[in-house]
């Protein structure tokens, strides 16, 4: 496989995953904020969407419509859903001959759905339709990837991109929501609202039901964080995704020997180190731990780039 193609596949996987998380986060944040009792909290919820996407607006007091447009359909904002889908599709287009027709057409239809979505409808009444539509299209593309691709490098690089991005998005969502919770706590309105925020995090990651089943209890701070970081068998946990990054890297590496200093060795070390961490170690400063993990993931990206994507 060409190095450039591997690079494009990696990013195609990343953008696809990113668009899904942006859409779901936007949906959950917006609709959960509607029922919030304090206007400050509503504002905070929307600003949190901007923050999670990594967008800054020129206007300090953006209107709701401005925020929704910026995160959803603003083609000039590189962090919008439209931009993520556009970039993902451009990457797919560049490697179209490596993909199956089914994967390409599914991605193309996703792009057409997003790019043709009428902005005025979106801003006023189409938010749920647009975001759930996007999430469904994502599911179709991923389904086609699973059903129609050979388990070769094409598939592995796509999966590495997907899992890396998902690990990143889980952490970003957690960071963003923990900032929200900080704001809630400043208002001193009681712990019910804080608990509600932990529930929202789980909703953003489609994790509420499984979290309850796993702990046989209602979500709280401790089990939410533990669940999203360390559950080895839950697809929206960091440990699960890093594990798959490692697995696909091993499948790509034909030599299969992990000499110290090799890419697999380095990634394996980061992952094992992460797996054996406990909440106790960092419970006083969870954001710092999350940030540190994020930085390690970015380092893994760099290593993968140096190993495979140089051309």
């Amino acid at each position: 496989m060409l190095s450039r193609v591997a690079d494009n596949l990696f990013w195609m996987g990343r953008y696809l995953e990113r668009s899904e998380h942006l859409a779901r986060f936007l949906n959950v944040q917006y609709f959960s904020s509607i029922e919030l009792p304090y206007p400050q909290m509503r504002e905070q919820a929307l600003l949190s969407v901007l923050n999670m996407a990594g967008t800054e607006l020129e206007n300090d007091k953006p209107t709701e419509e401005e925020i929704l447009f910026s995160v959803g359909l603003d083609g000039d904002n590189p962090a919008s859903i439209l931009s993520a889908v556009y970039s993902g599709r451009e990457n797919a287009r560049s490697v179209r001959d490596s993909l199956s027709t089914e994967v390409w057409e599914a991605f193309n239809k996703y792009y057409l759905f997003v790019s043709d979505y009428p902005v005025s409808v979106y801003k006023t009444k189409g938010l749920d339709n647009f975001t759930t539509g996007s999430i469904n299209h994502c599911a179709i593309v991923k389904g086609k990837i699973h059903q129609t691709l050979l388990r070769n490098e094409t598939f592995h690089f796509l999966q590495i991109g997907k899992h890396i991005e998902r690990a990143i998005q889980i952490i970003r969502i957690m960071l963003s929501k923990m900032a929200d919770i900080n704001e809630v706590n400043k208002l001193k309105v009681g712990s019910t609202l804080e608990l509600q925020q932990w529930n929202i995090i789980l909703d953003c990651l489609e994790a509420k039901d499984m979290c309850r089943k796993h702990y046989h209890s209602l979500p709280n701070k401790h089990n939410t964080i533990d669940f999203l970081l360390f559950t080895p068998n839950f697809p929206f946990s960091v440990a699960y995704n890093l594990g798959f990054v490692y697995k696909h890297l091993q499948l790509i590496n034909k030599a299969k020997d992990e000499k110290p200093g090799s890419l697999e060795f380095k990634v394996g070390k980061v992952i094992n180190d992460f797996r054996y961490r406990e909440m106790e170690d960092f419970k006083d400063d969870i954001p710092s731990f999350l940030q540190e993990t994020l930085d390690k993931i970015y380092l893994i990206c760099n290593e993968i780039h140096n190993e495979y994507f140089k051309y």
Binding site: M1, L2, S3, A6, E153, K254, Y308, K310, Y311
Partner: peptide
């Protein structure tokens, strides 16, 4: 005087 392509391997 040979042509090559950059692949992941």
């Amino acid at each position: 005087d040979f042509v090559y392509m950059h692949t992941v391997y």
